[in-house]
Computed example of a mutant assay.
Amino acid sequence: MKNFSTELTYKTSRSSGAGGQNVNKVETSVTVIWNVSESRFFSDEEKELISKKLKNRINTDGILQLSVSESRTQYQNKKIANQRILEIVNTSLIRPKSRKATKPSKAQIAKRIENKKKLSEKKESRRFRPDR
């Protein structure tokens, strides 16, 4: 898990929603901003992987933004935003294991065909056949 928090910048604004007069006068909402393309913390390959996986969250300038206004305090929102952006980027760096194609064993194929025959015979025996 990489910690690139030195490259993050923060912008504050007034939160919306409940909170009374506190909402109207205190800037508690925090937006964390990170420029993916200019990061010195990650290699070019890692940056490409991050950009690919987070393409819906990264804007055309290569900037990843995340806003948090859950808490009533700016400090708490900053902590939450920092944690979230670290989680998002670290999970985007995880490469999925490549799938190895396998085929069923002869015993499995035989068992499946045998079960199909049994089911077919069971259904066949249920058919109503009036005497001719």
Rank of each mutant, 00 (worst) to 15 (best):
L54P: 00
K52G: 02
T91C: 07
A81W: 14
Q108R: 08
L93N: 03
K106P: 01
F41D: 11
E70S: 05
E38I: 00
T60V: 02
Q83M: 13
S92R: 10
R57H: 13
N82T: 15
E46A: 03
Q76I: 11
R72C: 08
Q74A: 04
K116G: 02
T91V: 08
T91M: 14
R84L: 15
N82W: 01
E70M: 07
A110N: 08
N77F: 13
A101P: 00
K53C: 04
N82I: 03
K53E: 15
I63L: 08
Q83V: 04
I88W: 03
K53M: 13
I88Y: 10
P104L: 14
V36I: 15
N115W: 12
N35D: 15
F41S: 05
I109R: 10
E114L: 10
G62A: 11
N35H: 15
A81N: 07
S39G: 02
S71D: 15
E114M: 07
Q108D: 09
E87I: 10
S67M: 13
S98H: 07
S92P: 02
N77A: 09
T102Q: 09
Y75R: 07
K97A: 11
I88V: 10
R72F: 12
V36E: 13
Q65E: 15
A81Q: 12
D44A: 06
V89I: 15
S105P: 00
K103G: 01
P104V: 11
N82L: 15
L64G: 01
T60R: 08
R95V: 15
E45G: 00
K97T: 06
L64A: 05
A107T: 06
P104Q: 09
A110D: 14
Q83T: 10
I80M: 12
N115D: 14
K103V: 11
E48S: 06
K52I: 01
N59C: 03
S51Q: 14
I63E: 14
S37R: 10
K116P: 01
G62C: 12
K111H: 06
K52N: 10
L86A: 03
I109F: 02
S39L: 11
I63A: 02
E70H: 05
D61L: 12
A81Y: 13
I88L: 15
Y75A: 08
K116C: 03
N115P: 00
S43Q: 03
P104A: 11
E114A: 12
F41V: 08
L66R: 04
I85W: 06
N77S: 07
R57G: 01
Q65A: 02
T102M: 09
Q83R: 12
I88G: 00
N56E: 12
D44G: 02
K106I: 09
V68D: 01
V68R: 01
K100R: 12
P104H: 06
S51E: 15
I85S: 02
T73K: 10
N56I: 00
N82G: 02
D44P: 00
L49N: 03
R95E: 15
S98N: 08
L49C: 05
P104Y: 11
E45Y: 06
I85N: 03
S71I: 04
K55G: 01
S43L: 05
Q108W: 09
N77L: 14
Q108G: 00
K55A: 07
K97C: 03
I113D: 13
K79H: 09
K103W: 12
V36T: 06
R99E: 14
S67T: 14
Q65T: 10
I50G: 00
E45L: 07
K55C: 10
N59P: 02
S51D: 05
L49W: 03
